[in-house]
Amino acid sequence: MKTKIGILYSTVDGQTLKICNALKEILVEKGNTVEMYSIEDFDKEITDFDKFIIGASIRYGKHNPKIIEFINKNKANLNKTENAFFSVNLVARKLEKALPETNPYFIKFLKEIDWIPNKSAVFAGKLDYQKYPFTDRLMIQLIMWMTKGPTNPKTKIEYTDWDKVREFGVLINNHY
């Protein structure tokens, strides 16, 4: 019997979606059936799936409020289903902040909600100043300056560790 896996995501610039697509590919390779939904388009029940993954990116230090609302509203069903959560943020580009236990945004997220995912991960995102609207670019440059990151407006760096994404997909597949 194939395992039916749901992936729910929230993305700002598309990197979380790219990570979700990579996870989907890994899980389908392993023989699972995978359905993917944006937080705006999810119209199923969590319990329709054997496993449920949530991925969310950070913008200005916060996950999308719709993700937090979704988790708070669906906590009971999340707890009935094997689940995983991952966060995507640029702070995770630093090795010492690339784990759920050490990433300040992930730690803050867990304090905001009353739910602990079965499996969790933190992935570094992508920095692409030319893609951002003017105000976002200035704010992100300021944040990067404060955190000793690149501030050149032509900078385009994908920090995502794809081996780590693959390991997370294999973990999700093998864990349950």
Rank of each mutant, 00 (worst) to 15 (best):
K2F: 03
Y9V: 06
Y9A: 04
T11Q: 02
D13S: 08
Q15F: 00
Q15L: 00
T16M: 00
I19T: 01
I19Q: 01
C20Y: 00
N21I: 00
N21R: 08
A22M: 00
L23P: 06
K24F: 01
L27C: 08
L27N: 06
V28M: 06
V34W: 01
M36C: 06
E40Q: 08
D41M: 02
F42E: 04
D43T: 08
K44I: 00
T47Y: 01
T47C: 03
F49V: 12
F49W: 10
I53S: 05
A56F: 01
A56C: 10
S57I: 05
I58H: 01
I58Q: 01
I58R: 00
Y60T: 08
Y60F: 14
G61I: 07
K66R: 08
K66M: 04
E69K: 15
F70H: 09
I71M: 06
I71K: 05
K75L: 01
L78A: 10
L78E: 11
K80G: 10
K80I: 12
A84S: 13
A84G: 11
F85N: 05
F86N: 05
F86E: 04
N89S: 13
L99E: 14
P100R: 05
P100W: 03
P100D: 05
T102K: 11
N103Q: 02
N103R: 02
P104I: 02
P104G: 02
Y105V: 05
Y105D: 08
Y105T: 02
F106C: 02
F106Q: 07
K108L: 06
F109G: 04
L110C: 14
K111Y: 03
K111F: 01
E112D: 15
I113W: 09
I113L: 10
D114C: 11
P117A: 08
N118V: 07
K119S: 04
S120D: 09
V122K: 03
G125W: 02
L127A: 11
D128Y: 15
Y129Q: 13
Y129A: 13
Y129C: 13
Q130E: 15
Q130F: 09
K131R: 14
Y132H: 11
F134L: 14
F134Y: 15
T135P: 01
R137T: 12
R137P: 07
L138Q: 14
L138M: 14
I140S: 04
I140C: 04
I140Q: 03
Q141R: 15
Q141N: 11
L142V: 12
L142Q: 14
M144W: 07
W145I: 02
T147K: 13
T147A: 13
T147G: 13
K148D: 10
K148T: 07
G149A: 12
G149E: 08
P150T: 09
P153T: 11
K154V: 05
I157V: 15
I157D: 09
E158T: 15
Y159C: 08
Y159F: 15
T160M: 10
T160L: 08
D161E: 11
D161P: 09
W162D: 12
W162E: 08
W162N: 12
K164E: 13
K164L: 13
K164F: 10
E167G: 10
G169C: 06
I172T: 08
I172Q: 03
N173P: 12
H175M: 04
